[in-house]
Design a protein around this nucleic acid. Sequence first.
DNA 1: CGGTATTGTAGCGCTAGTTAAGCGAGTACCGGAAGGT
Length: 506
Amino acid sequence: MKTDLQQALKKYYGYDQFRTGQLEILESVMQNRHTLGVLPTGTGKSVCYQLPAFMRSGQVIVVSPLLSLMEDQVKQLRAKGFKRVAALNSFLNYEDKQQVTRNLASYDLLYVSPEMLQNDYLISRLMQLEIQLFVVDEAHCISQWGKEFRTDYLRLAEVVRTLRNPPVLALTGTATPEVQTDIQHLLGDLEMEKHIYPMDRQNIAYFVQEVQDQQEKNETMLALLRKIQAPTIIYFSSRNMAESVAALIRINMPDMACAYYHGGMENEDRILIQQQFLAGQLQIICCTSAFGMGVDKEDVRLIIHYHLPNDKESFIQEVGRAGRDGKESVSVVLYSTGDWQIPVHLIEQDLPEQSSIQQLMRNLYQRVKAGMTDLPAYELILQHIPIGETQWRFLLYQMEKHDIVKGNQLQYNAQTWKDFLEQIEKLVGDRKKHKLVQLQRMKEWVYTDTCRRQILFAHFQRTVRPASGRCCDNCGDTLQDWETVPVSVQQDAAGWREQLRFLLQQ
DNA sequence: CGGTATTGTAGCGCTAGTTAAGCGAGTACCGGAAGGT
């Protein structure tokens, strides 16, 4: 088995040796066992399912959270000469989608979004295949996004059952034990062989800097940027702030190429910014949490948190984008006391108020009574009830789970609806409490006076490895003696625009 | 003291407009009709 895999690695990729964890995960996959792989580095995860796709018969289905990730993968594979690969998503027009869907058997590797897997027609076509492996890439999304933001992630368990339980491979870069259990549970309580590799990066040093107000925050940030002139990501919890601080940096540091990035931008601009950062034409990115997945840049030296993430998992993920090359890198959290308001607000915003739920159910009841059993569209709901889209999707998922909605129809039953209201109140309460506890843990980490490395990973790993260089401010380390690495910024944005256009045309 | 904060996909609908699309279709499920007992 091992020699077969090694030969295949050589044949398809030209490598002589597997990277950490790849062989172990592959052996588990090749024996058709459900597998959970947590591999910290950004590279090399895809080998774990691409190799089986090339070596064996039957299809490999890969669930991927971002269209850009799917497109990247497909483009790379096509460029390497693997033609039996496709991504099925809304980038395709109706004809191409039909073409792919009708000829699924002619692909070895098929990338899809979780939303796409809710399409009945696609499922019926998939059922006619012999699926050798069902992969969930970036599997932490199941736990992190599934419960409110992208509920279709929770419906993957049902999809796996419908497809007659093919072997499942869940892959991610960071997953705490809690998230690992969540993934297993939410994929249908699968018995999974786990291959977990430590995520405490030894070359990242942690610093927290308290500031009194925004002006001091900006000054501290600028001083840091001047000191560590190297590829930097600055995380914000607000799109507007990301934009305005990017402008501030441009004015104060005209030599450092800086841009902003967030979910409200045009797709083309987002791709462009990310490409420029990867190519070293941009040194600083001011961004929201939208930036990161699929960003595999080796030499990111500094991660600044201008605002705080909602939990330690997100923080670890964001910080983990530094120092992939193994060289010493730095995380700096800038905080002032009022900063906690933002994550609290964001947590509240994800989940509906009890009064909104009651209003909604009353509204739906009136519709049913008037003979309109069709599920109203979100836009229509919004005219009557002030409810966010995420909240609506959360409730919709719960209503389907409780048989209040079936297909596109409302099913009225007095008792069911009454029970639903009670259960949903408890669920929302528990969920908010849980998220606030996670935020509280983040807060404790900021205020701790013991080793930050120990506290950050304490609940996540049995042992925390020592830092290879500097550890953290609480261990007496400072950035005073940090060697400034001169950077050369290439001013070639126009050339990149052309290259991007060329890439998009293919 | 008041305002203000993230994350993405798909989209058979009736848009936006001195823009163009070119609507294509397999399957499961349900209710009703036909036919069997």
